[in-house]
Amino acid sequence: MLGRRGTLPFLAGPPALWLALFFVVPLLLIAAFSLRAGSGAVGPAGAWVPSIEHYQQVFGTPAFLRLLGLSVATAVGIATLATLLAYPVAYYLTFRAGTRATLYLTLLLIPFAVSYLLRVMAWKLMLGPDGGINSLLQGLGLTSEPLGLLLYSRPAVIVTLVYVWVPFAALPIYAAMQRIDRSHLEAAADLGAGPWARFWRVTVPLSLPGALATFFMVFIPTVGEYVTPALVGGTDGIMYGNIILGFFTRSANWPLGSAMAMIMLVLTLLLVVVALRIVDLRRVSL
């Protein structure tokens, strides 16, 4: 008969093994390939000579570092915009929607269930020279020529990704606001605080962890984005992720691509550690 303690290896063992094999080992492989001399599409059978030449090359290429900076800045911008836009929505759902909050939240989340690629394509249709916005503007007689600059630019990437993330961004903020004890607000009111003072001094501080969680939950997938930039970014809207992909496909140089991926991984983990110092993300889990 299997005792309680005896069950543990069967519970913890398989997941630990699976995650080690398919999550830890692959990440270690990036490190291994990035520290390997040579270039091109080098298989495991080739020579394994340790070298930091690929890191030297990445750090010696201002264009790569600038693009990394630009990608981080773009992701920060997108995460900030998504958070700011989602905040009033979460506020409305928590404090104003009353019994309909669940329905309204569901309405908000439905677009998030629509395929990501489809939503990006929708924006392509909206922004294109023959697209919705242009033909609408022309139909209303506001412009006579199509505005060419809407699509294939960094702003197009930002607009599209903010759109993609806003519904999701409302969730952690909403969760944090749900936990605000209404008596705090009533106490503030009793002490003479006006609506704005209550908002700034009670609601905002108490919902801040949720807002920060939102920020990072948007930032992390966005900083490594490459699909949306490839579809709507044109030649100057691309991000660091596109170059990583480039070194694995179009320009096949796996060790160099690995070094670039490693740099992104370390940077992201650092930012998350910083985030965890600021806010305890576990308190705002969904």
Binding site: F22, L29, P221, L245, T268
Partner: peptide, 15 residues
């Protein structure tokens, strides 16, 4: 959850 997808893609590819 906190590893960018492009990095995960590279990792699995190399595996």
């Amino acid at each position: 959850l906190i590893v960018p997808f492009v990095v995960m893609g590279v990792a699995f590819f190399l595996l």
